[in-house]
Nucleic acid binder design. Structure first.
Lengths: 187, 187
DNA sequence: GTAAAAACATACTAACTAGTATGTTCTGCG
DNA sequence: CGCAGAACATACTAGTTAGTATGTTTTTAC
């Protein structure tokens, strides 16, 4: 469904509430009748967008890079660098689409919050599991809680995405250096 | 100016664009004529709100707690705990008003971005300076860049504020534990 | 081939939006 | 007092919003 992809791009740049249905359909070749035939209302389109566009994309960038049995700290770093630097769909000025939606809709709509929470928890659990297994197999030290570290890492990501909107690419690069240093303390 | 305080509260909860002038004036005893007598337009009210309400409040919670010559790591931790837990004006579900505005308006309005960047840089520089001085006087190790650490710390704050919106208070508490552990690696 | 249902398209509506036009009231000053 | 400007108040406007009502076309089932 092409309309979800276009809606995703518009909402990524302008926010969910600020992106009107009229603008979405004007930028595709879909009429209002077709829109409301496929979606009960704007909210259900937003939820479909999270499920069908955002979630799969986030999973590919956040969780899959961790599916390695090699150096897990390196994998975590590569995942972060991939998200911040290499991802061609994201724009520093617009941040992360998932973080944006959490920020805007988390407090306003419980269904949005539920769908977004799933993405975040999935990511945290993947990091946590990786760290735990590395600890068990003796590849990294056991003096850090995997759960705490996973939350700490994901929080850092959300924050630097926010900061990048006003400070630009430089803060991504500085952040990555600090992040690498942090990861080295987990060894 | 009482209207700025009320507008601040409404925007904190609902976002800047989603808070209409009509709603602001309806929740105060100010009419539209008075509103547009005091502010050229909605944008200039938003900017006044940042300068006169948000900036002073943020400075008091973010920078002033660092004005100590004692244990700087403890001061940084207390600042973070004060921001996340003790601040009676903030609500976990609504996050941090400054972070919210950066997220929503940073990409859309250069004047907003400038005003918000000032707040963030002021905070980062205060942390950076504290860490640098502690390093110079030998109270903490010199193996970490104060600039990188300051950015890392502020990013973490923004991120956990975002995450708290969907994960609730528990993630604040877990974050603070991880944060304390991180600070201990700077010793 | 035709009837029914799916998949649209067009024109509308009621509520809301920032902002304006045009008034009125208050407040200090000579 | 009187009068000028500051400080409001009220009524309006043009544009936008999500959603609907009512159509038409396209596909599917038999």
């Amino acid at each position: 469904m092409d309309i979800l992809q276009k809606a995703f791009e518009l909402i990524y740049k302008n926010g969910y509430q600020a992106t009107s249905i009229d603008v979405i359909i004007a930028s595709t070749n879909v009429t209002k009748g077709a829109f409301f035939y496929h979606f009960k209302n704007k909210e259900s389109m937003g939820l479909a967008l999270i499920e069908e566009v955002l979630s799969p994309g986030m999973y590919a960038s956040m969780v899959r890079p961790l599916e390695t049995s090699e150096d897990i700290l390196e994998a975590i770093y590569q995942m972060m660098e991939g998200l911040l630097i290499d991802n061609p769909f994201f724009n520093i000025a617009y941040g992360c689409p998932a973080i944006n939606l959490i920020e805007e809709m988390g407090p306003l709509n419980e269904a949005f919050a539920d769908a977004l929470r799933k993405i975040v928890l999935q990511w945290q659990e993947a990091i946590q599991k990786s760290l735990y297994e590395a600890q068990e197999s003796g590849r990294i030290a056991k003096n850090t809680s995997p759960q705490q570290a996973a939350l700490f890492i994901t929080a850092g990501y959300g924050g630097v995405r926010n900061m990048g909107k006003i400070l630009g690419k430089n803060c991504y690069l500085t952040y990555l250096k600090a992040f690498k240093h942090y990861l080295s303390t987990l060894k």
